[in-house]
Design a protein around this nucleic acid. Structure first.
Lengths: 128, 128
DNA sequence: CAGGATCCGGTGGGATACTG
DNA sequence: CAGTATCCCACCGGATCCTG
């Protein structure tokens, strides 16, 4: 790689997409955050993540389990009892999520100002 | 907030969604990365971001401009010449993108292993 | 060159009903 | 309780054609 290169990746193609494909959807990070304080059961998570449908919670948890970010444990009781907890890999995301939240907080005001200014100076734009 | 709370957010609702709504789509980070080394013109970006359609490049740049992450400059030449560059706010994303890429590199192997294991032990799952 | 305008298909995700 | 099974639709993004 060129010595003057100051880009983000050290490999030919962008690694950032990897993690975005994993947490960039509508619910994943909210579910992860819900698990940061310890194991939670299905209903607990659904109650904690406002607005998530039971279908999407299932899909989100399955994907997290498949990637090894969440461990699913079934207790052979009647009725069935299941809990989910972050694995070490899943928990390692916490720092990154902190950084993302920090960036949002830091730049939130600037972005909203820029946005209002754009909307004011581009009244007939349908971007939004 | 409870003193034992170790979650990610310090506000009631998750700030992480803010930034994900901004960079979580298919092309935004790739375009930003393409601009990290300095101003680029429309065709240059399109050539640098493999596979992006002209429509999506336009939309992505408009959104970045609206949020004040990218500055669009039109030079009154014939034919028109336009370049895009990161603003200070946009450039401030670089560290975050570095961290995201670093996380991906660090955990890539574990995730792929977990995934293969899941697929092997759940042969009739349609998650993928 | 740098886009605007359309058309169109795939899919992410919601609502609802049912089950072990 | 913890899901599974369908149906359905909005919208994200691709392809193509046109313009200042």
């Amino acid at each position: 790689m060129s010595p003057t290169h100051t880009g983000v990746t050290t490999t030919p193609r962008c690694r950032i997409r990897d993690i975005l494909d994993r947490i960039g959807d509508k619910w994943t990070v909210l579910v992860i955050v819900e698990l940061t304080d310890g194991p939670r059961r299905f209903r607990q998570i659904q109650h904690g993540v406002d607005g998530i449908s039971q279908r999407m919670l299932t899909l989100t948890l399955r994907r997290l389990e498949r990637d090894g970010l969440v461990q699913r444990t079934v207790y052979p009781t009647v009725p069935a009892q299941v809990d989910y907890r972050l694995t070490a890999t899943g928990a390692s995301l916490t720092d990154l999520l902190h950084d993302m939240a920090a960036w949002s907080r830091t730049h939130q005001h600037n972005i909203e100002t820029a946005r209002h200014h754009y909307d004011a100076t581009h009244p007939d734009s349908d971007i939004r």
